[in-house]
Design a protein around this nucleic acid. Structure first.
Length: 721
DNA sequence: TTACGATCGCTTTTT
DNA sequence: GCGATCGTAA
């Protein structure tokens, strides 16, 4: 490939980044500014112009999807498969280093990964054994605490407890870490922290990697947490060049440890040059103008303003719905006209703040027979039946894996009850043995009731038999044999209803996935099973069925980051929903909510609809929310208010979508208690009550068909009969 | 061990 | 208001 082709079709700033001299660089890449393109071309440039070897390149992303896309596009650009290049996620790459140096890391060769569910179970068990009241110290909170400390790079010894409460949490952290270490288990945060420590404590090793990875590239840098930052810094050493790409305005993961200030820290620590990518190739001028204005309300930004040389496009449409049902109906009607315009369903996205909001929207789509796809939710490899099967495989490859042992010892039920189990646990604790060996020991002591002893003996035989059998089998056969002989298949086949059927199907799908699994050749796995187990822990298992079906795309604002759609609906844009109630309390959270809004808006290419409901059923109660402050932060000339055309008996007194009404206003509009009224949506009804003043004023009408409703500003759509 | 009634909790999520 | 989880009784 001709070198000049690498710069063709890039704008000046992109070109500047791709062809920059070897130095540390920050590429501040706005939404839709072509950052992946820059990363990919930079890698190609390093190889072709700077004659860097693939071996010296290290590129990190957050998600497997991003890593995969980067690899594919690099290979396309170079028109050659690349080998020796490390492209992967933080966890994937750290895991790879840990595997190679498991001895230095004090881990067994076949150490396994704990997901958050495993972690929680582990902590629950621990609390029981430590006699700690899980009402006073909820396991979730402890698990969160432990992960947060690890994300900060802290071990128990690095932490000083401020009060008795934290003292106890520290105690649990210590006990949890001991248990993990004994079982050969690492949680997600541990992968990075342990990798960091291994490198730090082994200068020779560290030097090897520092000398190898001369060119480092990091995507979505605004999402890095403290340990990721330290890890990168350690690996880079003083001789590597590192290019980070990120956008402080799109930092939306502060709540899970991401440090937006890492960008500024990078500039000073690495003495880096900054290049801004501000030309946007995605959205209309209006959408960009609105987004820019919104985000300007945040303080302490790096500063960046998106522009386009494309069209202004249509204004952003704002719809004030009566309630969440009306909002859903509105969305559906607009989706239908979009379809009628000859467009694809999959080009529309519905974005909401929280998952709970999806249900009403789904029902509305379902009613009109419109297909939809929901992002997020239970991942394939996290399903109960899948984890059961995987736990057998894990126990087979590592007898120390207590988490796996606990999971399958009595699944399917084989008469090993709580009593027998606590016997085993006691023995394990007393002798510092993994549960598997404790079970064997307990069996040999012969203190067990006959039935329990037989059950345990049979379980041990089962696992050992499986281990023998699996040796000469292919991966898919290994899974199949395990699922069948363990009795899992029979157990789920016996489960009645749709649920059981789905579970059996999932187990079959797991065997299928084993068959399709390709062991990454460059990563030195000791066996295909080891590779597959790592894959199931580090990869969510998406990308199965239905991905390409033409359907409305529904997701939270968080999961929309990085995606784009011609038509976007942002629903529930109300105070208390978005920004969320909780974000009002903690400092900094409001700005993160604003960034989230910015992310949502900048997903839209052609047309953006924003809606809010005046009344909404939430946790079983009717709530009245005013329109989000974010709406007020968008310049009015970017917005267009949509009102349903209703005939009102007299002109609406005041307020547009703000819903400002006074007592007097109700009377002025000619409504009185007991009066019969007509509503465009809800039909005929009787005025029951009105109350409040200002934005919170509302009128309660008992509709003949719908029942009673409190409506804010809805009086404007009421007609006196 | 299972089944069912009480209780809890309720943003956002990848690895 | 709903779904997951927990605790207790059969």
């Amino acid at each position: 490939m001709d070198v000049s082709e690498l710069l063709d079709g890039l704008n000046d700033k992109q070109r500047e980044a791709v062809a920059a001299p070897l130095q540390n660089m920050l590429v501040l890449a706005g939404a839709g500014s072509g950052k992946t393109r820059v990363l990919v071309h930079r890698i190609a440039w390093l190889m072709q112009v700077e004659h860097a070897s693939a071996y010296s390149i290290f590129a990190v992303t957050f998600t497997n999807k991003a890593a995969k896309e980067m690899r594919t596009r690099v290979e396309e650009t170079l028109q050659n498969p690349v080998s020796g290049m490390w492209i992967g996620t933080f966890h994937g790459l750290a895991h790879r280093i840990l595997r190679a140096h498991h001895r230095e890391a004090n881990l067994p060769e076949s150490f396994q990964i704990l997901d958050s569910d495993d972690q929680l179970r582990m902590i629950k068990r621990l609390l029981k054994s430590m006699n700690i009241d899980d009402k006073k110290w909820p396991p979730k909170q402890l698990s969160w605490y432990i992960s947060a400390r690890k994300d900060e790079g802290q071990r128990p010894k690095d932490i000083t407890a401020h009060d008795v409460n934290e003292q106890l949490m520290l105690q649990v952290y210590t006990a949890y870490q001991d248990a993990c270490d004994r079982a050969g288990l690492v949680d997600f945060a541990e992968i990075l922290l342990r990798c960091y420590e291994v490198l730090q404590q082994n200068p020779t090793l560290l030097r090897h990697y520092q000398q190898r990875f001369r060119h480092m590239l990091v995507d979505e840098f605004q999402d890095t947490n403290s340990i990721q930052y330290l890890w990168l810094k350690l690996l880079a050493g003083s001789d590597s060049n590192i290019m980070i790409v990120g956008d402080d305005d799109q930092s939306i993961y502060g709540w899970r440890g991401a440090r937006i200030e890492n960008i500024k820290r990078f500039l000073t620590d690495f003495d880096a040059q900054t290049i801004r990518l501000e030309q946007n190739y995605r959205s209309t001028g209006t959408i960009l103008k609105a987004s820019n204005a919104l985000i300007q309300n945040n303080a302490e930004r790096m500063g960046k303003s998106l522009w386009t040389d494309g069209n202004q496009g249509e204004p952003i449409s704002v719809y004030a719905a009566f309630n969440e049902l009306d909002e859903a109906r509105f969305m559906v009607s607009k989706v239908k006209s979009w379809l009628q315009g000859g467009n694809a369903l999959s080009d529309c996205a519905v974005l909401y703040r929280s998952n709970a909001q999806s249900r009403v929207l789904e029902e509305a789509l379902l009613q009109e027979g419109l297909k939809y796809r929901i992002y997020g939710g239970m991942r394939f490899f996290e399903r109960q039946e899948i984890k059961d099967a995987l736990s057998y495989l894990r126990l087979i490859s590592n007898r120390n894996d207590d988490a796996a042992f606990e999971r399958v010892i009595n699944t399917p039920a084989r008469g090993i009850g709580d009593k027998t189990l606590s016997h085993i646990r006691d023995c394990a604790r007393a002798e510092s043995l993994p549960l598997w060996y404790a079970a064997k020991a307990v069996l040999e002591q012969g203190h067990l009731a006959g039935r329990a002893a037989t059950a345990i003996r049979r379980f041990i035989e089962l696992v050992e038999q499986l281990d023998d059998k699996l040796m000469e089998l292919e991966l898919a056969e290994q899974a199949k044999t395990t699922i069948e002989l363990s009795g899992l298949l029979a157990m789920y086949q016996a489960e009645k209803g749709e649920k059981g059927r789905a579970r059996v199907e999932n187990l079959e799908e797991l065997i299928n996935a084993c068959g399709q699994f390709e062991l990454p050749v460059e990563e030195e796995f000791t066996s295909p099973l080891q590779g597959f187990l790592a894959y199931t822990s580090l990869e969510s298992g998406e990308g199965q069925a239905d991905e390409h079906e033409d359907a409305v795309q529904m997701m939270t604002l968080h999961s929309a980051k990085g995606l784009e759609f011609p038509l976007v609906f942002m629903v529930g844009v109300e105070e208390g929903m978005f920004p969320s109630q909780q974000s009002h309390e903690e400092s900094g959270r409001l700005e993160e909510e604003r960034r989230l809004c910015y992310v949502g808006m900048t997903r839209a290419m052609e047309k953006l609809y924003i809606s809010h409901a005046e009344s909404r059923r939430l946790y079983g109660q009717e709530k009245y929310h005013s329109p989000s402050r974010f709406l007020r932060e968008i310049p009015e000339d970017c917005l267009e208010e949509i009102r349903i055309k209703t005939q009102v008996s007299r002109p609406a007194p005041s307020g547009r979508f703000s819903g400002s009404v006074s007592h007097a206003a109700f009377e002025d509009s000619g409504f009185s208690l007991g009066q019969r009224v007509l509503h465009a949506k809800f039909g005929a009804g009787t005025v029951l009550n009105y109350e409040g003043s200002g934005a919170q004023s509302r009128i309660q009408v008992n509709f003949d068909d719908v029942g009673s409703k409190w409506l804010v500003t809805a009086y404007a759509r009421l007609q006196a009969l």
